[in-house]
Simulated assay, not measured.
Amino acid sequence: MSDGVKHINSAQEFATLLNTTQYVVADFYADWCGPCKAIAPMYAQFAKTFSIPNFLAFAKINVDSVQQVAQHYRVSAMPTFLFFKDGKQVAVNGSIMIQGADANSLRAAAEKMGRLAKEKAAATGSS
């Protein structure tokens, strides 16, 4: 079953995703994290709704198994959502990250990233 979420298993895999996809939303989570489990279905729905190959991807990064990436981005709370454009971390709606299971902020960010990706895809004739 594909929910549109890219499950990242290594720093190299994440780097490849950042290099091949214009916009990326990354969910840093832990299996033992209750709020992470609570927001996961919503995140999966955003991925299913907004993902566009090569333009917008939704990634999940387990902080316990892919520690190098979590440490690189200084993730200290779970869940933490980060946003990327052209491989660089960016702010969305004025926030460089969303910490915690903040459904309203995550929805607003996913919708904005989805809109931007759709516009880019349409401009290149890829939609």
Rank of each mutant, 00 (worst) to 15 (best):
A38L: 13
S51D: 09
Q67Y: 01
F50D: 11
A70V: 01
Q68Y: 00
S76C: 07
C36D: 03
H72Y: 11
Y73K: 07
L56W: 09
A40T: 14
R74F: 08
F81Y: 05
W32T: 09
N62K: 02
K48V: 05
A57S: 15
A38G: 06
G34Y: 03
P35C: 05
V69E: 01
M78C: 07
F81T: 14
N54R: 14
F46A: 11
V66F: 01
F50S: 07
R74M: 11
P79N: 07
V69Y: 00
C36I: 00
P79Y: 06
A47S: 13
R74E: 14
V75L: 05
C36R: 07
R74W: 04
A77V: 14
I61S: 04
A59Y: 03
I52C: 11
N54K: 15
F84N: 12
F58Q: 09
A70Y: 00
Y73S: 06
L56P: 13
Y43F: 15
L56G: 12
F81H: 07
S51M: 10
A77G: 12
M42S: 13
I61W: 03
A44T: 06
F83C: 06
S65M: 13
Q45H: 12
N54A: 12
S51C: 10
M78F: 08
L56H: 10
Q68P: 05
F55G: 08
